[in-house]
Design a protein around this nucleic acid. Sequence first.
DNA 1: CTGAAAGCGCTTACAG
DNA 2: CTGAAAGCGCTTACAG
Lengths: 338, 338
Amino acid sequence: MSTVTIKDVAARAGVSPKTVSRVINGEDHVRPEIREAVQRVVAELNYRPNAFARSLSSSRSYLLGLFIDDPVSGYAADVQHGALLRCRERSYHLVVEPVELNRPDWKDHVRASIASLRLDGAIIAPPICDAAELIDLFRESDVPHVLIAPSGESPDSGAVRMDDRGAAREMTAYLIGLGHRHIGLVQGPLSHSASARREEGFRAAMAEAGIAVDEDAVLRGDFSFRSGLERGEALLDRTDRPSAVFACNDDMALGVLITAMKLGIAVPQSLSVAGFDDSASSRAAWPQITTIRQPKAEMAAAAVDILVDPSFRKKSAGPQSRLMLPHALVVRGSTGAA
Amino acid sequence: MSTVTIKDVAARAGVSPKTVSRVINGEDHVRPEIREAVQRVVAELNYRPNAFARSLSSSRSYLLGLFIDDPVSGYAADVQHGALLRCRERSYHLVVEPVELNRPDWKDHVRASIASLRLDGAIIAPPICDAAELIDLFRESDVPHVLIAPSGESPDSGAVRMDDRGAAREMTAYLIGLGHRHIGLVQGPLSHSASARREEGFRAAMAEAGIAVDEDAVLRGDFSFRSGLERGEALLDRTDRPSAVFACNDDMALGVLITAMKLGIAVPQSLSVAGFDDSASSRAAWPQITTIRQPKAEMAAAAVDILVDPSFRKKSAGPQSRLMLPHALVVRGSTGAA
DNA sequence: CTGAAAGCGCTTACAG
DNA sequence: CTGAAAGCGCTTACAG
């Protein structure tokens, strides 16, 4: 495949390279017939602009970075996929950059990505969306960036989130509506700010119903399946066990469900189990787990849209760069009347 | 962050840009004291070469592409992670490109990636590693590429695989060793060449033990959890059900396990269930599923190594670009004596 | 509406 | 061992 350049196209179309450039970038000020002629030659020659030449001469790289703590999780996969598809629609490419905050050299890696890749923008996934030191790196370098589900506001950052608190409150209210009064909570890890918001929602719903929270039935997990197993055992292997358990993500809910199974507790007849995320693990169970549908892929796609938007790139964070996406309560087999 | 260029470094170090270039690329023919001086300035100025300028002037992009059918699967996540970490060690970046062979424009997307990104190499995951039309695209463009777990040999392609047939045979022999004689098989989809190899291994082990395969207990799934549920029901909801089921991946094995649960069949007391992959779903079950550990991340990392190796880049496929990585039988709770 | 000139920040030959 | 020149393939001002 001999490389076709903009000059080849220009020569064949009988115009200057600049005109070809205008056409392929969809700029104005080109006569329609010339535009068409150029487009025809582009198609004939199967011309593709060299992304590096373009990036070197312009200030844009057409590259977005996805910075993520644990690229292997199911959560990461959904986020990445949403971002990937939208990038493709927008003719951007996505580079995934793992960030391990517990490694001493993490800043070097991030700086290297920013400097050598000249990223046009960055998407920062939880929980590192709350790492001020990380955000500062992007701010210092003037790299537009959007945070996924951050805890607070950051002046120069875009943000896409869902109503974690409201969703957890709905779930809790739903369980209360089923007649449950003694509800256990498996919290998420402190490192994830969503954990606190979900717990707040739980407590709000309990308070609204006038039900006292059994603090002995509030246990902290780390969002892993294993921690769900362990907390589930602590919660269920006792005489005054709760009639329902709300785990702050699906992996932990699955752990609780499986613990119930081991202990011979029938779900949902003797125990209701609820999760959060609508991840694959909520469906790969029996009964399937009642959960909150979190719009992960949509959030990532929205982040891409914000980054690609010229107005965000120019003047940073306006209201249209602060989005809240809708969630949904998904009732399945793991919950039932008390 | 004012951009530091090679000229800035050169000026400050009192040498020419070319010398700086030699130092940062680790080339020979630089006096040690000059090398050190340059390195000191690089560190002081926090200089990072502009990847685009480098790529434009050289023929290398330091970019590897991971071409994958379904980037959301757990399999994809493991492969990607393995490739990502190794890329980082080698100072390469990874671009993930979804390829949907059932969309008419898939070739355009691949061509566009190859042409505009000037990929230094491509990793092609299953099942599309067996799509000849796709491989041809890379061959035509002279893009070095490594196939993960392909069915056959391709003259210009590197390949990293595991012994699917041997592993399936081991698993089957293990089940036979437990006393099982009536063993059901849930095959993988025809689109994945690994399915056929695993089935071969199953049949080889049965033949070696002199046991006839019950063809009514050989059903085809599509590697999805759902298909495991369905085939599980077809296999187990009858009087002459097998005493063991070998599903050709873990997602399907989990489906079979859950079906057993629904039907009130005790695992492993009344039924043994075995999977393949050692994916997260094999552990997120109770009992945990006996499976074959597939070195997914290692295979991807090895693919990166092959692509980065100058000898592969120059003269393509030698024997060191054809690897077979070891697997392991992982015995867990889902299998027991017949 | 169109184009000639200059330059983005590197590396590739080529000298010395 | 070191450097001056030219060029990679585009786009950015700037003219006209």
